[in-house]
């Protein structure tokens, strides 16, 4: 246990070195002005951009209530809310259709090319058409995100269910299981490695698509903030936005996806197959 703890500490300390080096270089640039502040704002300016953006925000509660002065937290909550909503809707739908298509051979054969095509144009390419349909605003960006999440989860679930060895189904059927039990006790857990891959991919592609969609066809959210700040040449706000996006992504990955993987796939000794 102590050995494990020490190894972990070592990794954290080692991993911090490049960040420290980059941070030092960044700060040195602020002092020696190798690059102009408009191109590379000093760390202090990025830090104070938080407070400039949050100027009209009296406190945490107000930020959570999305008060009008809390610009930064509003953009963050708006983007994250859309991610949560699209997961809440897209995940169950994608898994349900994926399982259905996975166990029904004909349906699967018919829907697989649809999934391939939808995944090929998912994300950013839908933005112009979505703007035509929904106008500039949150509905367009939500549509883009949902579209990305659904098809990736659907497709990976389909592949995962198809990959579950038939003998598991037979074994459970021979014990007297109903069709529904076979789905919940064999297909869904058996497809889980692939489903988790689908969720990870949909988060990877989904965040990118959301940011791009907010830049082009949004009226709020982190991508929108980046775009507006860049147009006004407020580089420190752009830097801040980029850092926030990276931190949010890493936190969701660490806090949700990695533990999910550890608790299911690794514990069951299943093999992760890249689809």
């Amino acid at each position: 246990m102590t050995r494990f703890g020490r190894g972990r500490l070592r990794r954290i300390l080692l991993g911090a070195i490049p960040f420290l080096v980059l941070g030092t270089l960044w700060q040195m640039n602020a002092v020696y002005r190798w690059l102009a502040p408009i191109h590379m704002p000093p760390p202090a300016a990025v830090w104070s951009a938080i407070f400039t953006l949050q100027e009209g925000c009296p406190g945490l509660l107000d930020a959570l209530r999305q008060g009008s002065g809390c610009l930064l937290t509003n953009h963050i909550l708006s983007s994250m809310g859309r991610v949560a909503l699209s997961l809440l809707v897209g995940l169950p739908l994608g898994i349900a259709f994926g399982v259905l298509a996975g166990i029904h051979r004909r349906l699967g054969n018919a829907l697989e090319p649809v999934g391939v095509f939808a995944n090929a144009i998912s994300g950013i390419a839908w933005v112009p058409l979505a703007i035509v349909w929904f106008g500039v605003g949150w509905r367009t960006t939500l549509f883009i995100l949902l579209n990305t999440v659904f098809w990736l989860v659907f497709f990976n679930t389909l592949l995962g269910v198809r990959g579950v060895p038939r003998v598991y189904e037979h074994g459970v059927l021979a014990l007297g299981a109903t069709r529904w039990k076979v789905i919940t006790q064999v297909y869904v857990p058996g497809a889980l490695p692939s489903i988790v891959t689908g969720i990870r991919m949909s988060m990877g592609f989904g965040w990118r698509a959301l940011i791009a969609a907010e830049m082009i066809g949004g009226d709020r959210g982190l991508g929108f903030m980046l775009f507006v700040s860049a147009q006004e040449y407020k580089t420190e706000e752009v830097f801040l936005g980029v850092l926030v996006i990276a931190v949010i992504w890493m936190l969701t990955d660490r806090a949700c996806l990695v533990p999910l993987e550890r608790w299911t796939i690794e514990r069951w000794g299943l093999v992760w197959r890249p689809s």
Partner: peptide, 18 residues
């Protein structure tokens, strides 16, 4: 490893404005 992970999670599209 961590810094590569960090930059991998900042999408190129987010960097486009900069």
């Amino acid at each position: 490893y961590p810094i590569l992970n960090f930059f991998q999670s900042i999408s190129g599209i987010a960097l486009l404005p900069i």
